[in-house]
Design a protein around this nucleic acid. Sequence first.
RNA 1: AGCGGGGUGGGGUAGCCAGGUCCAUCCCGCCGGGCUCAUAACCCGGAGAUCGGUCGUUCAAAUCGACCCCCCGCUACCA
Length: 672
Amino acid sequence: MIEIVEKILITCALPYVNNVPHIGNIAGSHLPADIFARLCRLAGYDTVFIGGSDEHGTPAEVTAERLGITPRELSDFYFKIHKDIYDWLDISYDNFSRTSIPLHHETTLDFFEHIQKNGFIVENTVRLPYCENCRRVLPDRYVEGVCPKCEYEHARGDQCERCSTLLNPEELKSPRCAICGEEPVIRDSNHLFLSLDKLEPRLREWIESKKGEWTGQVVNMALGWLNEGLKPRSITRDIKWGVKVPLKGYEDKVFYVWFDAPIGYVSSTKEWALNQGEPELWREYWQGDARIYNFVGKDNIPFHTIFWPGILIARGGYSLPYRVAGLQYLNYEGDKISKSKGFGVFCENLPDAGLSSDIWRYYLTLLIPETNDSEWKWAEFQERVNNELVANLGNFIHRSLHFIQSKFDGVVPEPDLSEDDIELLKSTEEFAAQVQELIFDIRFREALRKVFELSDRGNKYFQSNEPWKLIKTDPKKAGTVLYVCANLCYDLAVLLSPFMPKSSAKIFEILNTKPGTLQDVGRQKVAAGTKINRPEPLFPKLDDKKISELKNRTSQVTKYEEMIMGKISYDEFSRLDIRVAEIVEVEPVKGADKLLKLTIDVGGKTKQIVGGIAQQYSKDELVGKRIVVLDNLEPAVIRGVKSEGMLLAAVDGDEISILTPDRDAKPGSKIM
RNA sequence: AGCGGGGUGGGGUAGCCAGGUCCAUCCCGCCGGGCUCAUAACCCGGAGAUCGGUCGUUCAAAUCGACCCCCCGCUACCA
């Protein structure tokens, strides 16, 4: 039983703009949220589906710095890529916002001020690693060093990857900044904390009330956190890129991205309301009795069951999520998707791959990891498309419409309906109800299967009535069969629309009939006498060759960072003073196992540079070698050693090969 | 390491919380036979899992308990 409520707000976890989405991100949140939203609209609910990009935080700041651009430029760049991909995949966001817009900063400040007024903010001093070279407070995992337990040399400040001991940065031996290699110092810094401890009883009560309604994974994970006891959690950071903290002494701090990111749901709804020309309309979704559905990946569950609801309670006057749909992960051919290995299907390649977005949506719907991790397999993709989409659903639609086209001049015939026909036509209402119920219960795969059950039924009906024989013996009866089939096609188009909107629209177009809603299913909306448009197969059959083409094409990893850096002019290139140098002397750098200090002769001028080649080259091998250096690089201090240039080498993972002149070239020779 | 989720015929998946009606569901694939409007479907028949492993509880276990193995996530400043 589904209780009818007016308003539904759907949110999809905001993607972080430091990266580009792959199929796992689509199947894990955008697609399920979209199917849900489309169904809600189809069922007549007042639906708002919002999303946006999460843009603040350390990773974006560091990436931007590395690329020599501002965080905003980085965000602008990635935002567009994300937006284009979601548009292409027909993810029907009513609004896709950004956390960097002023409206969001205002909303975050409003939350903070109320939370503070309500007494849920405390201040504390924390000791944090700080890199004086980068002038940056380092998050735990940006500190590297030697593990105190297993002596692993590349342990991170949060955990040693070899012995998996949990660490804090102060425990590392010879710690260094992961960005520049300098040794960080520990500094005191004041920070604001959200008193989750005070919110615990209310959170517990809320979670308990969802037992049985939500999946076990989501409830248990939340209860796990509650049972361990909630502690105040810091909501500020010592970086620049984010929402400024409006307090004295916090001029150099911003709110923690995890504080402001979920508030982005509210900001995005506000932005939507503004675009609707009704600036206050958002309140009906956040401060009224709308049902709020959050679609998030499993890594995100604690944030949406503890941290974010805690923020909402502390703020006061906002509704808590009605349901947190926590989805699992999508793997690829037996392993995790890996961008660096080019292992997976990367969405930026989809538009040029030559298939309708519906085809991708279809298989990805079957892979929505509702309860378990799922797995993309090309062989299965091919089978599913050919045997189900093409042969079952596509075939029923096409054989029906093609028959009308070729035997009835494209006019839906006048029927003479039997009891059985009427019953069949009416039975689709039940399908519609079941599809709705399944989707509301976050069981998309089963819901889609239900749709196929209907086309299956259509195929059986067509088959057992043999209109291709009746057309010769009893044309009236043949016409009745095709009238029924045309109406089944219509109903299928309605039920298919949340999953495959383009194909659905195409069916309506061929039927020359207005697209319908769930209410129209089973109502014989395709009238006798309708002149249909010329049908054509809805879906392509995929042969082995096509599959391997798709596989090659979609696993390409676009080098976005190179695109951001762009092409440089000859003038810019000519600013680089690259020269041949001869290595005079080689010394190790204390406390660094990768670095060597090289004294070099650059055409009569002697200088020293530091290079990270200690693991690949020995001293003997290097002394006397002619190498290539960037001579006019701004000097830097690396591990306490001055470096006045840069050694050029080919780098491929751990393999390093120093560049040398192919023929005899004097030290100091310019490279151009 | 601790916490949480998961391991069911070739692939996916239901059932497990409330043990028997399950020598286990449904979809796809596979094998054999019929029919043809369609990018062929539909019908009939068939092969295939002792439910991750071991040990227990019970008249009875995929379902409950213990231990073990494997995969995944979280463990609070990466998001």
